[in-house]
């Protein structure tokens, strides 16, 4: 970042004279550059850049995926995408996920993190609730279970007849939930799926935020408390500004995970849910490529997904900047 150069930089003016532009090209120097610059660059070009370029190309072909032959068809895959109502629906669902899941996860994780670090007793030193180290460990548990397992378990929990959820709801007297299909109703399929994702993510981000809050000097919290700040006020005005870099990182990672969401949705509603209400872009891409044998078209979907993901990351940075994020110097 372009840090404002101080008008007068004391002590910098008398820099010792440089020894030639970059020093001599000794064997050490060259081998160092080959190993630490050339090799990673080559790997990056072969395994990252070249697939991108290839994907851009395949997206403009009618490749079926199962033969070496295909025709170049220009942008017609993209025009087809623009008219594809099912794909549009999946884009909408993915965007919805990218908005709701990170937001909900971060809010809950931040609350939990505050509870186990600074929201303890109102007198004495700054500390978390009693037993907070236990909660910290427990909250991490879901993150250690693979996503596909979580998906399968929750699909069973949501089962209309034999599921735990309806079992509990009917047991407490809510008879209308007898055989209620949580994943089968348009109104509930998406929220229920989102809940599973948030449930799985919260633990990890709690731990992340706990670590960040631990890095904030306790004096600041003490000062806030002496000034009469309540717990929510402390989270909003002290914790959040001081760990905003972590929040931003969390937001981007969560957003990317939510834009993918393939594993979750494939486990919960493999075919896209009622009226395609939980269909996400990667599912539609997968189906188009492997079931329908339209790899060229599927690749175009991949390109769109990549663009949306980039756009999402850009938005997060922009929002952070507009709300006064400290990009220059500072922590990080």
């Amino acid at each position: 970042m372009t840090a404002p150069v101080p008008a007068v930089a004391p002590g910098v003016g008398r820099k010792p004279k440089a020894r030639g532009p970059r020093g001599r090209l000794t064997f050490d120097r060259v081998s160092f550059m080959v190993v630490f610059l050339g090799l990673p660059l080559a790997l990056f070009l072969v395994f990252v850049i070249s697939p991108f370029v290839q994907a851009l190309y395949y997206a403009m072909t009618d490749w079926s995926g199962f033969s070496p032959n295909f025709n170049f068809i220009g942008f017609s895959n993209y025009t087809k995408l623009a008219q594809d109502d099912i794909f549009r629906r999946s884009v909408l669902n993915s965007v919805l996920l990218a908005i709701v899941v990170p937001f909900a996860t971060i809010v809950i994780a931040l609350l939990f993190a505050s509870l186990v670090t600074v929201a303890g007793g109102a007198s004495g030193g700054i500390r978390g609730l009693r037993g907070s180290s236990f909660y910290r460990v427990v909250s991490f548990f879901p993150y250690t279970v693979p996503a596909i397992v979580i998906g399968i378990i929750w699909a069973q929990v949501y089962d209309p007849q034999a599921g735990l959820l309806n079992g509990i709801l009917t047991a407490v007297g809510l008879e209308k939930f007898k055989s209620f299909a949580w994943l089968g109703e348009v109104a509930t399929a998406m929220p229920a799926s989102m809940f599973v994702m948030v449930w799985a993510f919260v633990g990890f981000y709690t731990v992340l935020f706990v670590a960040a809050i631990k890095g904030v000097p306790a004096e600041i919290y003490e000062a806030a408390r002496l000034d009469g700040a309540g717990r929510l006020r402390t989270i909003w005005s002290v914790t959040l500004p001081l760990i905003r870099d972590n929040v931003q990182t969390a937001w981007i990672y969560l957003g990317i995970a939510a834009l993918d969401a393939f594993v979750w949705m494939q486990a919960l509603n493999p075919f896209g849910g009622p009226n395609n209400s939980t269909l996400v872009m990667p599912q539609e891409l997968f189906n188009t490529a492997f079931a329908k044998g339209q790899f060229g078209y599927a690749t175009a979907m991949g390109v769109v997904l990549a663009l949306i993901t980039l756009l999402f990351a850009a938005c997060v940075f922009l929002v952070n900047r507009l709300t006064g994020g400290r990009d220059e110097g500072g922590r990080l």
Binding site: Q54, Y58, D260, A289, T299, G302, A306, L310, A314
Partner: peptide, 14 residues
């Protein structure tokens, strides 16, 4: 900003 692309694009090389 580049990070997400890695997960997004299916690199199908024929």
């Amino acid at each position: 900003a580049l990070l997400p692309i890695g997960g997004a694009l299916a690199s199908c090389a024929s």
